[in-house]
Deep mutational scan, measured.
Amino acid sequence: HHGSGALAALHADGPHAGLPVTRSDARVLIFNDWEERKRSEPWLRLDMSDKAIFRRYPHLR
């Protein structure tokens, strides 16, 4: 199991509170979210491209 239990660094406060600090933090969040959702949506594709990251977390651009 590759990303399970990996912890992402999140901004503690300010405008980005609760959001990932780096792209690799964002990838951890996206992976964990996908892993949760694919139980009920097995067709869901995992997209951890930069484009997917920016779409979801525009502050990382």
Rank of each mutant, 00 (worst) to 15 (best):
residue 48 M to D: 05
residue 27 R to A: 07
residue 21 V to P: 02
residue 1 H to N: 11
residue 21 V to Q: 07
residue 61 R to C: 10
residue 54 F to P: 00
residue 46 L to V: 06
residue 20 P to R: 01
residue 37 R to D: 15
residue 27 R to Q: 06
residue 26 A to Y: 02
residue 15 P to W: 06
residue 11 H to M: 03
residue 56 R to E: 08
residue 8 A to H: 10
residue 48 M to W: 15
residue 46 L to C: 05
residue 41 E to M: 08
residue 44 L to T: 06
residue 58 P to F: 01
residue 3 G to D: 10
residue 18 G to L: 06
residue 5 G to D: 08
residue 27 R to V: 05
residue 35 E to V: 15
residue 42 P to S: 05
residue 61 R to H: 07
residue 61 R to E: 07
residue 53 I to R: 01
residue 1 H to E: 11
residue 34 W to C: 00
residue 42 P to A: 05
residue 31 F to N: 02
residue 54 F to G: 05
residue 8 A to D: 03
residue 18 G to P: 03
residue 46 L to H: 02
residue 47 D to M: 03
residue 35 E to R: 14
residue 55 R to E: 13
residue 43 W to Q: 08
residue 6 A to Y: 13
residue 56 R to N: 05
residue 22 T to M: 03
residue 4 S to F: 15
residue 5 G to N: 10
residue 44 L to Y: 10
residue 43 W to N: 13
residue 2 H to V: 11
residue 55 R to I: 11
residue 51 K to P: 12
residue 18 G to R: 04
residue 6 A to E: 09
residue 6 A to F: 13
residue 1 H to V: 12
residue 19 L to S: 02
residue 3 G to R: 11
residue 18 G to H: 05
residue 13 D to K: 15
residue 49 S to I: 03
residue 51 K to W: 11
residue 41 E to W: 06
residue 37 R to Y: 15
residue 60 L to F: 04
residue 16 H to Y: 15
residue 40 S to K: 11
residue 31 F to L: 07
residue 20 P to S: 01
residue 57 Y to C: 01
residue 45 R to D: 06
residue 33 D to E: 14
residue 25 D to S: 10
residue 52 A to T: 15
residue 49 S to Q: 02
residue 47 D to H: 03
residue 14 G to N: 04
residue 52 A to N: 08
residue 18 G to E: 04
residue 14 G to Q: 03
residue 4 S to V: 14
residue 9 A to E: 09
residue 56 R to T: 15
residue 4 S to T: 13
residue 58 P to N: 03
residue 4 S to L: 12
residue 31 F to G: 01
residue 42 P to Y: 05
residue 59 H to I: 00
residue 42 P to E: 03
residue 52 A to I: 06
residue 20 P to E: 08
residue 50 D to S: 07
residue 33 D to P: 01
residue 48 M to S: 02
residue 35 E to W: 15
residue 53 I to S: 00
residue 31 F to V: 04
residue 29 L to P: 00
residue 6 A to D: 09
residue 32 N to H: 12
residue 54 F to W: 07
residue 12 A to I: 13
residue 28 V to M: 09
residue 5 G to W: 12
residue 40 S to C: 14
residue 8 A to I: 09
residue 6 A to I: 15
residue 36 E to R: 13
residue 53 I to T: 01
residue 20 P to T: 01
residue 35 E to K: 15
residue 55 R to P: 00
residue 44 L to A: 08
residue 61 R to I: 11
residue 14 G to K: 03
residue 47 D to A: 02
residue 29 L to E: 03
residue 45 R to P: 10
residue 52 A to Q: 06
residue 56 R to C: 06
residue 12 A to R: 10
residue 17 A to M: 12
residue 28 V to R: 11
residue 17 A to N: 06
residue 17 A to R: 13
residue 46 L to R: 00
residue 43 W to R: 08
residue 5 G to V: 12
residue 33 D to I: 13
residue 28 V to C: 11
residue 25 D to P: 01
residue 54 F to N: 09
residue 30 I to R: 15
residue 21 V to K: 13
residue 7 L to Q: 13
residue 53 I to Y: 02
residue 16 H to S: 06
residue 44 L to K: 04
residue 57 Y to E: 00
residue 23 R to L: 15
residue 30 I to A: 01
residue 61 R to T: 07
residue 3 G to H: 11
residue 54 F to A: 06
residue 10 L to K: 05
residue 11 H to V: 05
residue 19 L to K: 06
residue 4 S to P: 11
residue 3 G to Q: 15
residue 24 S to V: 09
residue 5 G to Q: 15
residue 58 P to V: 04
residue 57 Y to P: 14
residue 3 G to M: 14
residue 15 P to E: 06
residue 13 D to S: 13
residue 32 N to L: 14
residue 10 L to E: 03
residue 36 E to L: 13
residue 55 R to V: 09
residue 61 R to G: 07
residue 28 V to K: 11
residue 27 R to F: 03
residue 19 L to C: 08
residue 21 V to A: 12
residue 39 R to T: 10
residue 57 Y to T: 01
residue 43 W to P: 02
residue 34 W to E: 01
residue 35 E to D: 15
residue 33 D to R: 08
residue 38 K to R: 14
residue 60 L to W: 00
residue 60 L to H: 00
residue 56 R to A: 15
residue 32 N to I: 12
residue 12 A to P: 10
residue 46 L to E: 01
residue 25 D to V: 15
residue 3 G to I: 14
residue 54 F to I: 08
residue 61 R to A: 10
residue 17 A to C: 08
residue 9 A to F: 14
residue 29 L to S: 02
residue 40 S to G: 10
residue 17 A to S: 08
residue 55 R to G: 09
residue 34 W to N: 01
residue 49 S to G: 04
residue 32 N to F: 09
residue 3 G to S: 10
residue 15 P to V: 08
residue 30 I to Y: 01
residue 26 A to T: 00
residue 15 P to C: 06
residue 23 R to P: 12
residue 58 P to G: 02
residue 14 G to I: 05
residue 40 S to W: 10
residue 21 V to E: 06
residue 20 P to I: 15
residue 2 H to T: 12
residue 43 W to L: 09
residue 53 I to D: 00
residue 41 E to N: 08
residue 43 W to V: 03
residue 3 G to V: 13
residue 9 A to W: 09
residue 12 A to Q: 12
residue 1 H to I: 15
residue 3 G to L: 14
residue 35 E to M: 15
residue 26 A to E: 01
residue 27 R to D: 01
residue 45 R to C: 14
residue 44 L to N: 04
residue 15 P to T: 06
residue 44 L to G: 03
residue 5 G to P: 13
residue 15 P to L: 15
residue 44 L to H: 06
residue 25 D to G: 05
residue 45 R to K: 14
residue 43 W to E: 11
residue 7 L to R: 12
residue 58 P to T: 02
residue 5 G to E: 09
residue 20 P to A: 01
residue 9 A to I: 13
residue 37 R to S: 05
residue 48 M to P: 07
residue 40 S to F: 10
residue 48 M to L: 14
residue 10 L to F: 05
residue 13 D to F: 08
residue 42 P to R: 09
residue 18 G to K: 05
residue 29 L to M: 08
residue 51 K to Q: 11
residue 27 R to S: 04
residue 6 A to P: 10
residue 31 F to A: 04
residue 6 A to W: 13
residue 9 A to G: 08
residue 7 L to M: 12
residue 20 P to V: 01
residue 49 S to W: 02
residue 1 H to W: 14
residue 45 R to L: 14
residue 13 D to L: 07
residue 37 R to I: 12
residue 22 T to Y: 03
residue 42 P to F: 04
residue 42 P to D: 03
residue 5 G to M: 11
residue 58 P to K: 02
